[in-house]
């Protein structure tokens, strides 16, 4: 690990100033950052520890939404009674990720900034445009079983690893940001992460030093919420494919449909195509199959990951069938 200086922030504005300098980085839970610093993939020269700032609370909003402080632990958020009752898809997604120990350390803001687990990104001897811009992509033509089938580019086919972010996209969350001179902005989560294009090393719209202060959830949409994750082992493993679904039915017709996939792209993948194929249609497997086909119409395999195109469709169909069976009961 490269040497760095360390400071513990007690004031958000001062932290933003400190982190705006080149080479500076925030550290919160540190579970991903320290992992990458040990491998010298991340090489900050100065760490600003923001884990003790007063951004840990989960607060009610006037519109029946919730504001989750960026420093709230993944475990506290998953266990929060309001999240469990009103946003169960978020609780399920958080609990499907990592281990008990990691969820206790990892913060909500840090979860959004996780780097890909592409093995070529982690291997300093491989070419990787994300780690070393311009060096090429060893995953294209390499072992790419875990890689993207949607929204990839010739520069990068890595996937985003977060489960939580997939649920947040389905919930239309906003990300609250604090920048220099106390400027704040709220960015829709769908616009927060970038597709790789020709600059896969730039993963979000964050400016240098800009800090995530909270995740804002609007009032939950009507309907049943389900997160389903398919992976190589039953626990403590990243997704091959995952899906967050929110679906409501009235008299056999689908009246609300939100579909977001994980494990298929460089960012959580909202499928407006699947949603359009579900809304106002009769609930049932024929509708779900049509939606799944619409969702994967633009999908491209790279060889080893071709199976994900089928797997994503089956996962969506099964999740919708489970969710609507429950939705009809209630």
């Amino acid at each position: 690990m490269r040497a760095f200086t360390y400071e513990r922030a007690t004031d958000a504005g001062a932290a933003v100033n400190a982190a705006s300098n080149p080479g500076a980085k925030y550290i919160s839970g540190g579970t991903n950052l320290l992992d990458l610093m040990k491998l010298e993939i991340e090489r900050p020269t100065h760490l600003v520890d923001i884990s003790r700032l007063a951004f840990r609370d989960i607060e009610e909003l006037p519109d029946h939404g919730l504001r989750i402080g960026a420093q709230a632990a993944n475990s506290d958020t998953a266990a929060d009674a309001r999240v469990r009752a009103r946003y169960p898809v978020l609780s399920q997604a958080l609990l499907a990720g990592a281990s008990g120990q990691l969820r206790n350390m990892a913060s909500i803001g840090g979860n959004l900034l996780q780097r890909t687990r592409c093995p070529y990104f982690y291997d300093p001897h491989s070419s990787c445009n994300k780690r070393e811009p311009g060096s090429g992509c060893a995953a294209i033509g390499g072992v790419n079983r875990n890689h993207a089938i949607l929204g990839a580019s010739d520069a990068c086919i890595a996937t985003h690893p977060s489960d939580m972010a997939v649920a947040l996209v389905a919930l239309d969350a906003g990300i609250e940001l604090l920048g220099k001179s106390n400027t704040t902005r709220v960015v829709a989560i769908g616009d927060f992460h970038r597709l790789p294009g020709d600059k896969p090393h730039i993963e979000t719209i964050l400016n240098q030093g800009e800090m995530i202060t909270a995740v804002v959830l609007p009032a939950p949409p009507p309907g049943r919420q389900v997160y389903r994750k398919v992976r190589d082992r039953a626990s403590y493993e990243f997704a091959l494919v995952s899906v967050a679904v929110i679906v409501a039915i009235e008299r056999g017709t689908i009246t609300t449909a939100r579909v977001t996939f994980g494990g298929v792209a460089h960012k959580p993948w909202r499928s407006h195509e699947a949603e359009a194929a579900l809304i106002d249609r009769p609930a049932g497997m024929a509708t779900y199959r049509a939606a799944a086909q619409a969702a994967m119409k633009a999908a491209t395999g790279r060889g080893h990951n071709d199976f994900k195109i089928d797997l994503a469709q089956r996962t969506l169909c099964r999740t919708l069938a489970d969710a609507t069976r429950e939705a009809e009961k209630s």
Partner: peptide, 13 residues
């Protein structure tokens, strides 16, 4: 009182 991985955190924190 909470379990964590001590390898993935800095002592200074």
């Amino acid at each position: 009182g909470r379990r964590i991985n001590s390898c993935l955190t800095l002592a200074v924190k």
